[in-house]
């Protein structure tokens, strides 16, 4: 193909690129939520955490000139929001789902308010590693420009999988999530374990937000997240609370999300909005196929309020 056009190959390449680029926030939020839910609590507020993370990362990066400081700031903001969620939930007769919805609205609202002055300026963005240097095809090179955060996320999934099995903290988190009675009988504070798990979950979700504002799409505006945080929370259920499955699910979602723009770029314009809805159709389809009224979800932490 001398003219550099690769025709219909654009579509799978764009999906591959999307799987790598779009999946990163999904990956961080879902791994964070995986930790939180494994401890027996569901934090729906991660949508707000994601947006707050994106805003604070962009702001700090702009003010300090270092995008990495921005990432750190996003993580700390997320951990603080996580602590707020866990703190409210540790009061008696408080429902974690309701608190999560409140914090989702609080987080997005606060981010829009504080982020108003950040829409105009341009902040330094996160660098990417060029894994496509060997190729002449620009589309392939574009697809293989990989951000370091993605690599960290990919490494984090097996590390979490290992940690849930072999570390003291992993075992404690699982105990709190599977049987708070057992944890209490061993003399552990379930609330403290869940506080820490929710803070770590918020930290990761905040970092996921920094990816949005500092790499892709790489700017701060109010339509940045468009529900990615809440989708990632659903991803955890769909991934059966397994960090490795969270990785594959995030990649699948990222790829599906890139399908619409990719088809448009090769001239398939009819049903553009339908293809943009591909991730959600994918979710529904998989949920319908894998669910059954006759059995409970396998792998679900027994203490989770949605499974109890």
């Amino acid at each position: 193909m001398a003219d550099g056009s690769i025709g219909l190959w654009t579509v799978p390449l764009a999906v591959l690129g999307g799987a790598i680029r779009v999946s990163t926030p999904f990956l961080f939020v879902s791994l964070g939520e995986c930790i939180t839910e494994r401890s027996g609590r569901i934090n729906l507020g991660l949508e707000g955490t994601l947006v707050m993370g994106a805003m604070s990362a962009y702001g700090i990066s702009y003010l300090s000139g270092s995008p990495w400081l921005g990432v750190l700031a996003a993580g700390i903001t997320g951990a603080m929001l996580g602590a707020l969620h866990a703190g409210i939930c540790s009061l008696p007769r408080v429902n974690d789902v309701a608190v999560g919805i409140a914090l989702m609205l609080f987080g997005t609202g606060l981010a829009f308010y504080l982020g108003k002055p950040l829409i105009e300026p341009t902040a330094p963005r996160l660098p990417a590693i060029d894994f496509g240097w060997w190729s002449d095809i620009p589309q392939l090179r574009a697809a293989l420009r990989v951000n370091v955060l993605f690599l960290i996320g990919v490494a984090l999934a097996p590390i979490l999988y290992w940690a849930f099995r072999t570390t003291r903290w992993g075992l404690l988190i699982r105990t709190a999530g599977e049987s708070s009675d057992a944890a209490r009988a061993m003399g552990h504070s379930v609330l403290l374990i869940r506080l820490r798990a929710t803070m770590v979950g918020g930290f990761l979700a905040g970092i996921g937000g920094s990816f949005l504002s500092l790499f892709y799409p790489g700017s701060w505006n109010e339509g940045l997240s468009s529900g990615q945080g809440i989708t990632a929370v659903a991803l955890v259920i769909f991934a059966r609370w397994d960090p490795l499955l969270c990785l594959w699910a995030s990649l699948a979602f990222g790829g599906a999300a890139a399908l619409g723009p990719a088809l448009q770029s090769v001239g398939v314009t009819s049903g553009y909005h339908l293809f943009n809805a591909a991730p959600y159709i994918l979710t529904l389809a998989i949920m319908i196929i894998t669910c059954s009224p006759k059995r409970t979800l396998t792998g679900a932490p027994a203490e989770l309020s949605i499974t109890r």
């Binding site: 003291r168 105990t175 061993m186 932490p301």
Partner: peptide
């Protein structure tokens, strides 16, 4: 206890090690 205090989703070995006061940070299985 009358009701079990073992964690059902974990193995017997995990339950035993977990019950100790001195669970190492990384368990050498």
């Amino acid at each position: 206890y009358q009701h079990f205090t073992l964690v059902p989703a974990m193995t017997v070995a995990e339950n035993l090690v977990l019950a100790r006061d001195d669970v190492p940070a990384v368990v050498n299985w």
